[in-house]
């Protein structure tokens, strides 16, 4: 069997298997906990949620 066929067949089996295994590993070691807190990452104490930025056109510019 040509080498390239082996690579192809191997990767068809290995890629999804590796994907599933790494997902299981990440989930078991708690890496996916409190996942959606990341939505707050663009904000910090300097520019918290609720503060608009870049309001420079129109009435706001004096």
């Amino acid at each position: 069997m040509p080498v390239i066929t082996l690579i192809l067949l191997g990767s068809i089996l290995l890629l999804p298997a590796a994907a599933l295994l790494s997902l299981r590993w990440a989930s078991r070691s708690g890496q996916l906990g409190r996942f959606d807190r990341a939505a707050l990452l663009p904000f910090d104490e300097e520019e918290p949620v609720g503060r608009a930025t870049d309001q420079i056109l129109g009435d706001n510019r004096r």
Partner: peptide, 21 residues
């Protein structure tokens, strides 16, 4: 929590699939 390695693997696997295909 950080899932950097998982992300990294996912990024590589997805492109590897069409690279093979």
């Amino acid at each position: 929590m950080s899932y950097g390695p998982l992300l990294f693997l996912g990024i590589l696997f997805t492109l590897a699939s069409s690279w093979v295909g």
